[in-house]
């Protein structure tokens, strides 16, 4: 599974994506953020305020309770500021 990062999340992590293979216990987007944070202090600090992290699953905006099963790409990013 590929995880993409954008804007200040990308900058704080110092990379724009990760290729990961999480265990089956990582079932939702929320689980994924917890799992990535547990393995990476920089990630934990950057995502400490979970309400500032938005997510997309296979190019569709989703909430943190969305299941991961079958997803090819998950994107994590701050609240959007276009327009």
């Amino acid at each position: 599974m590929r995880v993409l990062y954008f804007a200040w999340l990308r900058e704080r992590l110092g990379r724009d994506s990760d290729e990961i293979d999480p265990p089956a216990s990582v079932a939702t987007i929320a689980d994924l953020i917890d799992w990535l944070a547990a393995n990476d202090e920089t990630f934990a600090l950057a995502t400490a305020k979970r309400e500032l992290i938005r997510a997309a699953r296979d190019e569709e905006l989703v909430d943190h309770q969305t299941p991961l099963a079958g997803a090819k790409t998950i994107a994590l990013f701050p609240p959007m500021t276009g327009g």
Partner: peptide
């Protein structure tokens, strides 16, 4: 415009003489 502001994945960063900052939602 209202929906685009919060639901389209764009992020603004402003560059000033003092440095650059991401625009907060």
């Amino acid at each position: 415009m209202d929906v685009l502001k919060t639901n389209a994945p764009f992020w603004k960063k402003e560059e000033r003489e003092t440095g650059s900052d991401w625009v907060a939602a």
